[in-house]
């Protein structure tokens, strides 16, 4: 470890918080759909950084990162295909 893993993970979590605020508060299902995409990549990054923030690297956390990368994709595709329909947000559909 170089000592920078946990600060970088904190920075990524702050990024996640900023876009989470925007996504949960903002109008439209489309914006919320982008959250799933964002949480996939950022969550995997945070998990990998957490795995290497200890002196013997916690390699089981890399398996968690792999699982998360796979299942975030499945969730996002399910949301896009199943839950995102025409009548959901009639006025703000494109915003």
């Amino acid at each position: 470890m170089t000592g920078f893993e946990l600060p970088v993970a904190l920075f990524l979590l702050a990024n996640l918080a900023a876009s989470l605020w925007r996504v949960l508060r903002g109008p439209g299902d489309a914006n919320r759909l982008l959250a799933a995409l964002l949480f996939g990549s950022t969550g995997v990054g945070i998990l990998a950084l957490l795995a290497f923030s200890q002196t013997p690297a916690a390699t089981p956390l890399l398996d968690v990162a792999l699982t998360l990368a796979l299942l975030a994709a499945i969730t996002a595709i399910a949301f896009a295909q199943r839950a995102w329909q025409r009548g959901t947000d009639p006025k703000r559909a494109d915003d």
């Binding site: 989470l20 949480f39 957490l50 699982t67």
Partner: peptide, 28 residues
Amino acid sequence: GRALLAFVVFGLLMALAWARLDAPDIAL
């Protein structure tokens, strides 16, 4: 729909919390 997405987000953050608590099996 917003509640469902917040629940999914809660699950992901909970996985991060378990990883932070040195419990990789529960995080998985």
